[in-house]
Nucleic acid binder design. Sequence first.
DNA 1: GCAGAAATGAAAATGATTTTCATTTCCGGG
DNA 2: CCCGGAAATGAAAATCATTTTCATTTCTGC
Lengths: 121, 121
Amino acid sequence: MNKSELKVISVLERVGGFASAQQLHQLLLRSGESIGLTSVYRALQSLLDDKIVDQLRKEDGEAIYRLCGEAHHHHLVCKSCGSTVEIEGSALEKWAKAMAEEHGYREVGHLAEVFGICPSC
Amino acid sequence: MNKSELKVISVLERVGGFASAQQLHQLLLRSGESIGLTSVYRALQSLLDDKIVDQLRKEDGEAIYRLCGEAHHHHLVCKSCGSTVEIEGSALEKWAKAMAEEHGYREVGHLAEVFGICPSC
DNA sequence: GCAGAAATGAAAATGATTTTCATTTCCGGG
DNA sequence: CCCGGAAATGAAAATCATTTTCATTTCTGC
Ligand SMILES: [Zn+2]
Ligand SMILES: [Zn+2]
Ligand SMILES: [Zn+2]
Ligand SMILES: [Zn+2]
């Protein structure tokens, strides 16, 4: 855990939700920290590998991050209000892996989202 | 509905699932069509506006598209050549349903694709 | 204090997507 | 047919987030 990672974690705590790498960089600069954009990206990548942050994509494809100490997971997204809930995905992981193996595919990844209308909507 | 849009629709039909703009362009060229990448992007944007295609984002942020309104199914997609295999999804269906119920979500749907590199690539 | 490792950040490279702009194709009125 | 404007097309340039490169700085253990 190096300086950049600590700075990024601290600004993510301050933000409290999702933010892009560029936004986090701006926020850090504005709050007087000295850090390069490269280091923000590196820190985020490292925090992502360590499962300390969670990455999503905006509709335009830009990555956004938030603190989230959970393992790889998927989301249940409300079609109405957009709120997201993390869901347990081991059944899905197994399915994706099994399907890929069955057909001899390598370097496998997957993508899955469940949509619905949340109880409060 | 112009020529480019027709070409893009036809290749999307052939693909049967999700594909990126770049993949669609390559597939069109390989199948002998003459079309520019710009026109593929333009056609996809227009089809998106008209709700004729759906857009998703891969984990790396690249946009992928598919024809709307196809019978529900899932695919194993080759990241390299774009070829797709239809896969059995009952385990996934169960998982999505269970997750939604567990959190009290209504009107549930889901999206899932598995990506990898096929044996012949 | 010192060498080697890790961290840092500026600048260049990358890659998808969008924009610009000149050219070509369409199409309806004359 | 023929013309002129509108729509379509695509090559090249621009954009923009992200990654890579690489030279410099900071750490760390001895
Ligand atoms: Zn809601
Ligand atoms: Zn997963
Ligand atoms: Zn392949
Ligand atoms: Zn399904």
